[in-house]
Simulated scan of single mutants.
Amino acid sequence: MTQDLPGRMLRLLSLLQTRRTWTGDELATRLGVTLRTIRRDIDRLRDLGYPVDGTTGTAGGYRLAAGADLPPLLLDDDEAVAIAVALRTATSGVAGIEETAARALAKLEQVLPVRLRHQVATFQAAAPLPVPWSTGPTADPTALALLAAACRDHELVTFAYRRGSGETGRYRVEPHALVAADPVWYLVAYDTGHDEWRLFRVDRLTDPAPTGHRVPPRELPAPDAAAYVAGRLAAAPARYTLHATVPADAATVRARTYSLPGRVHPLDDHTSTLDLAADNPHHIAEQLLGIDLGPDDTIHGTPELAPHLEQSAQRLLRAARALTRPDENRSSQDTAHGGSNENGVGHR
């Protein structure tokens, strides 16, 4: 049992859980013991059921491998609270994540010390349940885990992929990173079959399989994976487009239209250009609700988008007219519906 281990072995186990591979010399230096002592402690961990693998060669060392059972994890106070809070608020675009997170949280809370359980309970009282707004596509958590490991280990993977057109093909890629652009998860990877960087939606990806072949990491043609995803999404072709000049600074326009950085460009401190693109015209209509557009001659785009924007405007106009009917009509309706909302809460 964990409590029977001496303090040094607990520290050794903690180190093994924080990094994939440690050399014997590194562990000996960290713990202030000899290499021979490290070897004995590793053998003791193995006797207790911890699957510690040993490798040889210039890059050899020790690592905590996957076993039949999950070994006890050593967490400090901040790590335990952070995990509990993350589990409580897990509503990302991963299939079944809410139910799985609830089960994991229940197990974690059972073993939390009283002082930490109180912190988690305080947070839960202030934020009892997350609101699951997103109803978009969800990714398979097993596929995410496999791809995350492949990104970490720079291991080639293969999978079947369904493109937006409906066509399906198999790919062999060098995975680089996973990026969540709510609610969609994307895999940034180098496509070895076409010799180019690609973006793959994980919800369209099936049968991922590691190949066991590792390669040196490639340099991504962007500052980081998130910037690469944002740039590719901004440049992606779409059925409907709209370009406009907006009398507001770029930060304000991005915030009010929920646009990717590449869609908004500043002209000066008070004016920006906005480029919107979507296959669903209602998405563009929704983005335009939060801003005022500039002169008519600065607005350009897909002519087929116009009737959809007009329909959205008519719906809003009808709602506005209904709210401005004579006072006596409003009063009778308020009475019929039990008066106004005392809490003043607006609903999405």
Score class of each variant (00 low, 15 high):
L15K: 04
Q17V: 05
T18N: 14
R19V: 09
T23R: 14
D25I: 04
G32P: 03
I38Q: 04
I38E: 00
D43R: 14
L45D: 01
Y50H: 08
L64G: 01
D77K: 06
D77S: 14
L87G: 02
L87T: 03
T89G: 13
S92G: 13
S92D: 13
A95C: 08
E98K: 10
A101Q: 09
A104L: 15
L105Q: 09
L112E: 03
L112C: 08
P113M: 11
V114N: 12
Q119F: 04
V120P: 00
A125P: 01
A126E: 14
A127S: 12
P128V: 08
P130L: 05
T135W: 10
T135L: 14
G136Q: 06
P137L: 05
D140N: 13
P141W: 08
L146S: 07
L147K: 02
T158W: 00
A181H: 11
D191M: 03
R201T: 05
R204V: 02
L205S: 03
P210L: 12
P217N: 13
V229G: 03
A250W: 00
R254G: 01
D268A: 00
L274V: 03
A277W: 00
Q287V: 03
L289H: 15
G294L: 02
G294Y: 00
H300R: 15
T302M: 04
P307T: 05
E310C: 08
L323F: 10
T324E: 15
T324I: 11
R325T: 14
S332Q: 14
T335K: 12
A336K: 11
G346L: 14
